[in-house]
């Protein structure tokens, strides 16, 4: 196998690699493209179902505490481990109670708000942070790129458990701190992808053209480069939301979860972990909710990617 062929093949494959991260080929996106993509997205019934699940979760999240059948935080050891009346036909608790006698149904609905709040806020932070860092690094290059690239390397290599404990030690457990940790953990993924495409997009003709007309760097980044990577960022975002919902449950084991009496689906699963055999419903019900939601978000992400992919045949 001689050298030139390998380089040729590599060129081809690296193009595929970037494509597989769903980076669109360089082309100025238009409004009609976006509209067409959205139409494509809504043509699939799978995407509709995915959206429906997400919306139901969202409705659960905004349900006021007072509307719930029971107080989701009321502890009563006398009522602990009641099986779901849905199956047994006995008792006041449709989906049973947990180790402290709290109603699982009310708690699951109550937990939705924290689950969504945490993962969505964390994703927003990491998206904004990662995109800005990646854009500036890829566009300006030079020392800024060097620093950001090193930071990305470090971030990707640093264990999240250690980071979480560090934050816990420095500023104590709080909702905000957990969101910050999750956001900090994920920014590097975005930065890496965005930086890669900014690096090659800045060499494209339409960027040169913009530069020639005297556009500022900020304007070029925001108006010409960012729109080109937006769809891949959107896709990354959906996958991140899903992953962070799961990561959150791991963090609650470290004390960095939402602090009681607030709760999330993830920490509800953790709380029922010990009772899987004796009282399966404690973990199975939030487990089902989180699984369905993560599944829906992932399918929606796939759908979005397919719809926005300018190379897609449809």
């Amino acid at each position: 196998m001689c050298w030139p062929i390998r380089v040729y093949e590599l060129t081809k494959t690296m193009a595929t690699y970037r494509a597989s991260l769903s980076l669109p080929t360089a082309a100025e996106p238009t409004q009609s493209h976006t509209r067409r993509s959205l139409r494509a997205f809504f043509r699939s019934w799978v995407n509709w179902i995915a959206l429906l699940i997400i919306v139901i979760g969202f409705l659960m999240a905004i349900t006021p505490k007072e509307w719930l059948p029971h107080d989701p935080t009321a502890v009563n050891p006398a009522l602990r481990l009641q099986p779901p009346s849905l199956f047994s036909g006995e008792g006041d608790f449709l989906l049973g109670t947990d180790t402290l006698g709290r109603d699982i149904l009310s708690r699951s609905i109550y937990a939705a708000r924290w689950t969504y709040l945490v993962s969505v806020s964390a994703v927003v932070i990491s998206t904004v942070l990662g995109t800005m860092a990646g854009l500036s690094a890829g566009y300006f290059r030079g020392w800024l790129d060097t620093i950001i690239a090193r930071l990305i390397d470090m971030q990707l290599a640093f264990p999240i458990v250690l980071l979480s404990i560090a934050v816990l030690a420095v500023s104590g457990p709080s909702l905000l701190n957990m969101i910050l940790v999750l956001g900090l953990v994920d920014w590097a993924r975005y930065a890496r992808v965005v930086r890669g495409s900014a690096l090659s997009l800045r060499e494209e003709d339409f960027v040169d053209a913009a530069r020639a007309t005297g556009a500022t760097s900020w304007r070029i980044m925001m108006r010409h480069i960012l729109p080109n990577i937006l769809s891949s960022i959107v896709v990354l975002t959906t996958f991140s939301t899903a992953r962070l919902m799961l990561t959150e449950s791991a963090l609650s084991f470290l004390g960095l979860g939402v602090t009681p009496p607030a709760t999330t689906w993830g920490s509800m699963i953790g709380g029922g972990r010990d009772y899987i055999l004796q009282a399966w419903w404690i973990s199975a019900i939030p487990g089902t909710l989180i699984t369905l939601t993560v599944l829906a978000i992932n399918l929606a992400g796939d759908g979005l990617r397919d719809a926005f992919d300018p190379r897609g045949e449809r």
């Binding site: 404990i165 816990l168 104590g172 457990p173 004390g255 960095l256 602090t259 009681p260």
Partner: peptide, 12 residues
């Protein structure tokens, strides 16, 4: 105000 802590941090 509840503050659950990882054991090592609790000990520290």
């Amino acid at each position: 105000e509840q503050v659950p802590l990882e054991y090592g941090e609790f000990r520290r």
